[in-house]
Design a protein around this nucleic acid. Structure first.
Lengths: 226, 226
DNA sequence: TCAAAAGTGTTCCGAATACACCCATGA
DNA sequence: TCATGGGTGTATTCGGAACACTTTTGA
C-alpha cells in the first residue's frame, strides 16, 4: 500500500487564544482578507507545512499573530467533517492557548491573509467563519474543565500575583463569586504557592502579599482546585 | 490562497479498543501484513477516505476489525510528528473505543493488510509499530481519567449487571480494591442505576440483584464517580 | 481621618472512610 | 449443612460552606 494511492485532505491548525483583559474573558480573532469567508472573523491558523510538526505549526501561527512565545498551549480537538470548508476537504487540528494579560497588551501583528486582529469578549462575538463557533464551544468547555482540575489558571497571571488577582480570574471563568476566606484557605492548602519577598507597592491601601507558583509545580498539572 | 498551493500530508485514523476479559484490561492489536513494520503489532486503523468524516472512518475501521457496532467511541488525540511514519508525512487522528466483554467474544475479522487480530493484556504487550506505544500511553491516561469523572465504566458492561461486576471493573482499572459497602453506597447515591425485575439465576449462592443504567443517563456524562 | 482593599478563624454540615456480620441459594 | 458470594449499618474523620470584623496604607 502506497501513500500515493489515496487522495489527501489538506490539514490546517487553528488556535483558540484566550486571555483575560479588563475583567473579561477574551478570545483573539482575525478578520479574513481572502475567500472563503472574506471579511468574516475566524481563529488564527493556517496550513501545516509538510516538514513541520503540528505543535510547531501552532506555535508558529501563534507567534506570527501575537508576537508572543512561551504561552500555555495544548491540542484541543481535530475537526474534519467533509463539508466544513467550501474549498474542499480540510481537516483542522485545533489548539488552545492561554496568555496573560501583560503579554496580551503587546500589539497584534496582522499577518498575510489577514486584515486585522482583535480581542473579543466571549459574550459579545461577531459571527465566525467555517465551523469556528463549534470549535469555540468546545474550547470553552475545555477551559472550564481545566480550571477546575488543573493549575492552568496561573497561565493567565504574571510571575508574581496576589491572591485577589487569582480569585478574580476564577470568578470570571466560573461566572460566580467565591468567599475570600474559603478561597484563600483552599488555594494555600494545595501548597502550590510561595510568598515572595516583596509586597505590591504604591497602592493607597494595605499592600498585598505577592505570591509565585512553586518552581516544581508545572502549569497544567492535574489537581482538584475548586 | 488555493488548497493546491500546499503539499498535503496523508491522514489516517487509528483506534485504541479496550475491553475487559478474564479480569484483565485488554487492547486489540492487529499484526501488520505489509511494510512498513510488517509482522509488527499495531492498532487497527487506516486512511481516511476523502468523502468520509473522521468519526465515520473510525467507525468503519472498528466494525471491519471487530464486527461490532454501537460501542463507546471518542476522539483521543492527533499525532502528526514529521517522522512518525517512514513512508512520508502521515498524520493520524486517534480514537478510543470501549466494548463490553460479551461483544468482545465475537470473532475478530482479519481484514485487508492484516494477518491476524488479537486481544492483548495491557501489562503484557508485544513491541508496537510506529509511535503506537505513545498513543497507548495517552489512551490509558484518558481511560483512567474518564473512569474517575464520567460514566464510561458502563460501556464495559452488558445492559444488566450486578454491582459486584461494576466494582470489579473499577478495581481492574484503578489497580486497587474498594470496600464493598462504601462502593455500593457511593454508586447508588449517584442515582444512575435502577434495579431490574430479575435477579441472576443458576448460581449456587444468593442470587444478586441486576441493575441497569437509567435510560436518561448518557454514557460519558461527566460526574464525579470515585 | 477616611477610603480602599488586605487579611484572618470558627462553626456547621455532608461526604468519605473504616470496619464485620448475616442472608439466600444450589450442591 | 456447607460453601459461596450477596447484601447491609454505624461511628469517625475530613473537607467544604457559611459567615464579619480588624489591619495597613496613601491620600
Amino acid at each position: 500500500m502506497k501513500l500515493s494511492d489515496y487522495p489527501r485532505p489538506s490539514v490546517t491548525v487553528d488556535i483558540v487564544i484566550f486571555t483575560i483583559k479588563d475583567n473579561n474573558l477574551k478570545v483573539l480573532l482575525v478578520k479574513r482578507g481572502v475567500e472563503p469567508f472574506k471579511n468574516k472573523w475566524a481563529f488564527p491558523g493556517g496550513f501545516v507545512k509538510i516538514h513541520e510538526n503540528l505543535e510547531q505549526a501552532a506555535k508558529r501561527e501563534l507567534e506570527e499573530e501575537t508576537g508572543v512565545k512561551e504561552v500555555y498551549l495544548e491540542q484541543l480537538y481535530t475537526f474534519g467533517d467533509v463539508s466544513r470548508d467550501p474549498r474542499g476537504r480540510v481537516i483542522t487540528v485545533t489548539y488552545f492557548a492561554l496568555i496573560n494579560s501583560e503579554k496580551a497588551k503587546e500589539k497584534l501583528n496582522a499577518s498575510t491573509d489577514v486584515i486585522e486582529a482583535e480581542w473579543f469578549e466571549i459574550s459579545n462575538l461577531p459571527p465566525l467563519a467555517f465551523d469556528h463557533s463549534e470549535i469555540l464551544k468546545y474550547a470553552i468547555k475545555r477551559l472550564k474543565w481545566k480550571f477546575e482540575y488543573t493549575t492552568i489558571a496561573f497561565s493567565f497571571l504574571p510571575k508574581r500575583f496576589t491572591l485577589t488577582q487569582l480569585q478574580k480570574i476564577y470568578e470570571i471563568i466560573f461566572e460566580k463569586n467565591f468567599d475570600k476566606r474559603n478561597f484563600r484557605k483552599k488555594i494555600l492548602s494545595l501548597e502550590l504557592l510561595e510568598p515572595t519577598e516583596e509586597k505590591e507597592k504604591e497602592v493607597s491601601y494595605r499592600p498585598p502579599q505577592l505570591y509565585s507558583l512553586k518552581s516544581k509545580i508545572k502549569i497544567g498539572k492535574i489537581i482538584d482546585i475548586i
